[in-house]
Design a protein around this nucleic acid. Structure first.
Length: 323
DNA sequence: AATGTGATCAACCGCATTGCA
DNA sequence: CTGCAATGCGGTTGATCACAT
């Protein structure tokens, strides 16, 4: 309803606050409290609008403000709360004593967001970025030119990089397959199992072979598996599964073809649907069901079940990129 | 030394929400 | 119930600084 009139209309001062203005504001509030922000500037002898005064007080002059670097605990709390609340900076700030919404917002935008992006995690959803799937077919076509261009050095170098990108995409696709496998195994009655789901089950039983053929190192495969199976701690399975949007059918076909052509992997996608690994049981609740009932429960140590630190937070804080 | 570039963060803008007459 | 004023909130901007070229 009704918008407040712009405070700039009467030639009010804008921009950085001077120490004198700060002193006036602090002294007035300490003596009278802020009362009506709109009336405050006049009463305190400030040529500022009420909004500006409120902002200056809440973000800078308030006595309980904690300044300086965010601790890892604070960072983890922000991550956990953001995964639940989204960009509700004020709500997040209410769980971090001494920190302002503005400060948290800035910290998110300048540090955490970049770090998540660097790790291939969508900062908005806290799940793996899937845009790779959309650009991959093109990348792969270009990368295949390597064979033709190998004599031409600059091109060859470029193509090698593209090949690396393709490898990464394969890795992501495998992650997706593993997730599908878990999903299928958890819901064996599901009538909507896709071809990719079948691939997924087969991939599950052949991880060592995959590793060899895709040229992935053991830790990559292990990460993909743990990440998809959620074996990192006490969280319920579905909570640990960062949802990945299925790549489109064309892309799936392309990837299957790639993997098949890769070599012995052909046997994988033609294998039988025989899940071997004992898969964890379905979770008792999902993140949405529980956390949204009491978001505050999710802060500090865990956003999920109160027993273990956030999976993402741990992952993030371990990232050498950030340390 | 001068210039360019990127990171940081305080402050602003404008829409949304709340409270009250 | 309606409309207005006050306040809250999130996105964005721009000044400043540090570092690289």
């Amino acid at each position: 309803m009704g918008r407040s009139p712009c405070c700039d209309e009467n030639g009010m001062k804008k921009g950085p606050w001077t120490p004198e203005e700060d002193t006036k504001l602090v002294q007035y509030i300490q003596k009278h409290g802020h009362g009506s922000w709109r009336a405050l500037p006049k009463l305190a002898g400030l040529n500022r609008c009420g909004k500006s005064c409120r902002l200056r007080w809440t973000n800078y002059l308030r006595p309980d403000i904690k300044r300086g670097k965010f601790s890892t605990e604070e960072e983890q709390t922000i991550l956990n709360l953001h995964s639940i609340l989204g960009n509700k900076w004020s709500a997040i700030a209410s769980h971090l004593p001494g920190r302002t919404d503005n400060e948290i917002k800035n910290f998110w935008n300048t540090h955490i967001k970049k770090k998540l992006i660097h790790m291939g995690i969508d900062p908005n959803t806290h799940r793996p970025r899937t845009d790779f799937f959309t650009t991959l077919p093109e990348l792969m076509v270009i990368a295949n030119l390597k064979e033709v261009m190998m004599d031409n050095q600059p091109w060859a170098e470029h193509a090698v990089r593209l090949q690396e990108a393709v490898q990464l995409a394969k890795y992501q696709y495998i992650q997706y397959l593993i997730q599908s496998a878990v999903s299928v195994a958890s819901n064996p009655d599901s009538s909507s199992n896709s071809t990719a789901d079948m691939d997924a089950i087969n991939v599950m039983s052949s991880l060592p072979l995959l590793r060899e053929n895709l040229g992935l190192n053991p830790s990559q495969i292990e990460n993909a598996t743990q990440y998809s199976l959620g074996v990192d701690g006490g969280r319920p399975l579905n909570d640990k599964l960062p949802y990945t949007t299925p790549p489109d059918l064309e892309f799936q076909a392309l990837m299957r073809n790639e993997i098949n052509q890769d070599s012995d992997l052909a046997s994988l996608s033609q294998g039988e649907f025989t899940p071997r690994s004992p898969l964890p049981p379905s979770p008792p609740f999902t993140i949405g069901e529980r956390s949204m009932k009491n978001p505050a429960d999710a802060c500090c140590t865990s956003s999920y079940d109160g027993s273990s630190p956030s999976f993402w937070a741990e992952l993030l804080l371990d990232d050498p990129f950030y340390s």
